[in-house]
Amino acid sequence: MAVGRSMTARTAAQLTALLLLGAVLLALGLAIGSLGWSPWTDSDETMRLILWDIRAPRSIGAWLAGALLALAGAIAQGLFRNPLADPYLLGCSAGASLGVAALLFVMGVSPAAAALALRVGMTGAAFAGAVGAVLLTLMLARGVTQSLRLLLAGVVVGVVLGSGSALLTLMNPDILRAMQAFMLGSTGFVGWSAVQVMAGAMVACLLVALGCSRTLDALTLGEDTARSLGQRLTLIRLLLIAALSLATGAAVAQCGLIAFVGLVAPHLVRSWGPTTHGALLLLSPLTGGALLLAADIAARWVIAPQELPVGIITALLGGTYLLWLMHRRGSTLGGSR
């Protein structure tokens, strides 16, 4: 009982701290633009338009995209019982890349194809590609009953679809710049409609994930134990994979491929102390949102007035953190001998 109360109090404190951090970062996001620091309290009409139409949706959208990727990462790591699982495990990233590459490719084929492509848009193409990749993975894995088969199918789908997008880019080099921007990730084109889509996806995925959190706790003891506790694993896996796919697809469609946020955020939460999956699924999105929003602010500010792709910032920070984590654990294991 005392341990449970201690964990609950710690989770509440962490939740409050992450909410405050998100609020501070959001204020910074409103105050930093392409020219660096510019006060968001300015009464100028033009500045108000910039704040409302550009910086506000971009900052909120960056937070939501990070939260979606972190939630997807926490789901993937719990579902597959693998700390290296990330949101792109089931081929979402390769499918989204192929969808965008196919859209850009057909735009140069004929006027009719270009008109259709413009109606679909890069966001729609990326989301359709991500969902299609997950469905193909499920088809190859023959359902969700075997985790290892799902993982292998996801790897195969990722390699094949990634080769397809590379082939389309090779056949039409004119699309290389647009594909590069998508592959490196960017929050510069996020508007209020994108914020609404990601917010809706966030609410739906979080509710599903929290509803399945007890099953994820049971899975840490093994599948046989989870079944003996009365958990309906097949149904729960389907729901979690649907939430994982929707969260990843929504984030990728709006912001492109952003590395490491979904992998690192759950690790950070676990490093703060033991936690249940219920708490992990609440804290990981807040952590991921703060990480991506901080990276987006840095991307705007570091070389202003130019802007770095936010995916480069997250890759550098995430890779550095994981290397440090490996070194620390290796030193601990070496010292224990």
Rank of each mutant, 00 (worst) to 15 (best):
D86W: 02
A101I: 04
L293R: 12
L333V: 01
L152F: 07
V160R: 06
A133K: 13
A62V: 08
F105E: 08
D44L: 02
T123S: 09
D296M: 13
G330N: 09
L322C: 01
S93M: 02
V100P: 01
V24Q: 02
H327C: 03
L323K: 07
N82L: 06
T314L: 03
V157K: 13
L325A: 06
C255W: 04
L25D: 05
A259L: 10
C92E: 06
G91V: 04
T220Y: 00
G256Y: 06
L317S: 08
L51M: 05
S228C: 00
L235H: 09
L28G: 12
N82S: 02
G335S: 10
A290T: 05
T123M: 11
P285Y: 06
I303G: 04
H277P: 13
L19E: 08
T234E: 01
A56V: 02
A153G: 10
L89K: 05
A247K: 07
L84R: 04
G73V: 01
G154N: 14
S165D: 07
A74D: 05
L207P: 11
A279Q: 11
E223K: 01
G22S: 07
G200V: 12
L292H: 10
D224K: 01
G211V: 09
A115M: 15
L167A: 08
V156N: 11
G288C: 11
G162E: 15
G164D: 13
S186P: 15
G185F: 08
L79A: 00
S331V: 02
L168T: 02
L140F: 12
R5V: 00
T187L: 15
G154I: 12
A70I: 04
Q77I: 00
I297F: 03
Q196E: 11
L150G: 09
G158C: 14
H267P: 06
S284D: 07
R227H: 01
L283H: 11
G273W: 10
A253G: 09
W192E: 14
M1L: 09
L35N: 13
D42C: 00
D86V: 00
G4S: 10
G256M: 04
S43N: 07
A279G: 15
W52F: 03
V160Q: 08
G143A: 11
P83I: 00
T8G: 05
Q77Y: 09
D174Y: 12
L176M: 13
L283K: 10
V157P: 13
L69S: 08
A94F: 03
L138P: 08
L257G: 04
L167I: 03
T215S: 14
S6R: 12
A62S: 15
G289T: 09
G66Y: 03
L30W: 02
I75D: 09
S336P: 00
G78F: 01
C205S: 15
T320M: 13
A65Q: 08
V106E: 11
V157H: 12
V160D: 09
V100G: 07
L268C: 11
A259F: 10
L221Y: 00
Q146G: 01
G33S: 06
A315L: 12
T234M: 00
M107G: 15
I60F: 13
G78T: 01
L235Q: 13
R142F: 04
G162M: 14
Q14K: 02
Y321S: 03
S6G: 01
L210R: 13
M171H: 02
G185T: 12
